[in-house]
Design a protein around this nucleic acid. Structure first.
Lengths: 232, 232, 232, 232
DNA sequence: AATGAATGAGTTTTCATTCAT
DNA sequence: AATGAATGAAAACTCATTCAT
């Protein structure tokens, strides 16, 4: 439930009452947030000033406080949006009732595509989450760390199904895999040589190899076969 | 050759002949750098002020300029030291003449141990490298990205030996693996439940599974066997 | 064309169409610049702090950066204004088509009156020009040193007319005369005993004596006569 | 009268008692003062730091306080030396018993040569005198402004002799001439095209023309003749 | 919705000076 | 004579924020 419209000054007559819209124009606000996100992506949150953001959108810095109550609000909005979108897009995939390895591939694929599609916000989320106030951090991760939970669930199910190596430490493997995926934000460039589809498949291939059980490998007739089967 | 002692204020003016013109006490400087590193680890480079550092070592902020010409010098010193140490410790391992998979395991193991032993500096290097000036970034990475080169070399050799899957895109796999390893800086805690040795072995296990060829798996009698063989 | 109104913070970002994006109030800015000039006149540029200026106008030092991007901007503005005004007031006089000695007297008179009327700015220009950045120095003197060129032109014309001593080294004489005039900024006081008109006449008298040819002296019937003729 | 040796820490056993010399080496001190003077010439007193001076002589800034008690001491020493030297070299010339115009030429010539020979110190004296503390300013100019007094005396004598225009305001003319001469410090370069001798003669020629009486001109048979007579 | 002036607390950096060794 | 550590005050500049218009 990406709640993109409810931000921006909860005070002021909201549109609920049907009166002609009051308060900041949400589209304009989104433009400003996008500009802020771009700057924070390039220079980091601390090194991005309110002045920078105002310059980027062509208004005076004082005017930004029509849309926002503090600089942190920008960060919150950026992170919240991307987090909510991820909840919506990725978590359901991990919770389907298909076999674990299929869900693993689907999860990795969705994650990679999501990261690339929301590259700016996703990168900021990963890099600057700690700059949020404790309250907001808490609020966002209220439901637990959903990525971690989702992936861990898949791996556990896989162990029960016998397709994931039972020697694995699931907790550890989960963070290792998520690290591998998230680190994409450090090196990915949209102008790079590899298409998102291929990249997702290659990630899935590596990760499959990392976790599959001997039994699953044999059943498929080798690792290559297993990859072919699952990466269609 | 980590040249950790030659930092700290090139002597000003001419240093006539062999008189002992020592410059700032290197041990004191190292203490200050360590304090700075701790703060930057906790709060990030931008959010760490010269005042914070001065407070941490118990002197006035102006006095820090006895050791350093700018705040960036601290960051440079922290990163340069850890970078040089890594060059010394890790790169040679990648260049030995043992079989590729052994070198892969050795590289991963060394990398994990190094990351943990130099956790503060290594984390800062990864997180704040871009805050360095372009000139210093260039200077540090003058010899190319040595981690990347080292790991890529191992994978390429492995493909030639037939023990690494020939379908792998080596370039991609290299950054994926390094991401997996480097992301440790985001979640590792020395008080966590897993000992460094085990962690290194588990990383190596995951990575082996990601890259081995079917042929190598069969030769070893399955993935589990192969892991056992290589992880002593 | 003294473009005194276009200073003060080029508007940031885009100024969409014809909306009145005014930037800082030019009159307020001028007041601040005047206060800064007064301080720099008394204490010199280097010894005048942003704090001093802020105190003089009764705001906080940080607030000055609403009008200016650096302390040097104040100096630039002061010097640029007086330089432009001089261009407008003095140079045309040197370029009229009257006889050379008349133009010489007119130039000297105009210069003296100008110096006195713009005493603060003119003094700062002379004393602190070198504190400007190379780029700004260059920008201001882009059209050559107009005072020097103007006076040299008069002397050369005078030599051709035969009213200025042909033995004179025009280049040298030009700087000598300008030095004599500019040095006024070192000793002139508005509360002194001599009125600007008299001072201008006396300067002109001295300078005439310095440069006239024997021929011109004889034609006028002596130096005193010549001075009387030209200083009306 | 140039009391160049009595500076540098009046405390400490002076050489008066015949004991092996104690206290700072005066030659070394002079080298340091020279270095300081060069820097202040280039960058101005305020913009020259103790650090700059220390760098220039290759010692640490703290060590300068062996020679000096404050930064102002450097300025004082530079100005005092040049002032004393001027007293010794120039004043006697103005006080000889030769005819006024000869003394005028001699004064101007001596002044120009002096300015050039002591260019650094003389320039600093003119430009930075006001940076000295009131006490030191007073101390230096205790005997009145000797240049002014000397030149004014010459002009007054000339008026009495009838060789200097009686219409002149002597006070004004004195500062005007001194301005003309002193401004040399603003444009003179030792690598310029004109030799000091010629420059002195040309200055004297201009100044003669400025002040001579009609009577003296006629007696000499014209300005040119008069100049030739006096400039040998 | 936005401006433009200002605040107040902060930032990094500079600098003259002191002093134990 | 000189070092090297440190001081303490001030410098220029930044920046998030407020607010009357």
């Amino acid at each position: 439930m990406a709640d993109t419209s409810s931000e921006a000054h909860e005070a002021r007559g909201s549109s609920k009452r049907g009166r002609p819209r009051r308060g900041p124009d949400p589209e304009r606000f989104q433009d400003i947030v996008d500009a802020a996100a771009k700057l924070m992506l390039d220079n980091g949150y601390s090194a991005t000033s309110i002045q920078d953001i105002a310059d980027a959108v062509g208004i005076l810095k004082g005017s930004l406080y029509h849309y926002v109550r503090s600089k942190e609000d920008f960060l919150y909005r950026i992170i919240k949006d991307v987090y909510d979108a991820a909840l919506e897009e990725i978590v359901p995939i991990a919770k389907s009732d298909r076999p674990a390895l299929e869900r693993l591939v689907a999860f990795v694929t969705a994650h990679v595509h999501f990261s690339i599609r929301h590259l700016t916000g996703f990168t900021i989320q990963i890099r600057e989450f700690d700059r949020l106030s404790p309250e907001r951090r808490e609020e966002i991760t209220a439901g637990g760390d959903v990525y971690v939970d989702a992936l861990r669930g898949i791996l556990q199910d896989g162990q029960e199904e016998g397709v994931v190596d039972r020697e694995l430490d699931v907790r550890f493997t989960t963070v290792a895999i998520l690290g591998e995926l998230n680190y994409l934000t450090r090196w990915y460039s949209p102008t790079g040589p590899m298409a998102p589809d291929e990249m997702a498949a290659r990630f899935a291939g590596l990760i499959l190899g990392s976790v599959v059980s001997d039994k699953a490998v044999k059943a498929a007739g080798g690792l290559e076969k297993l990859r072919q089967d699952l990466l269609s």
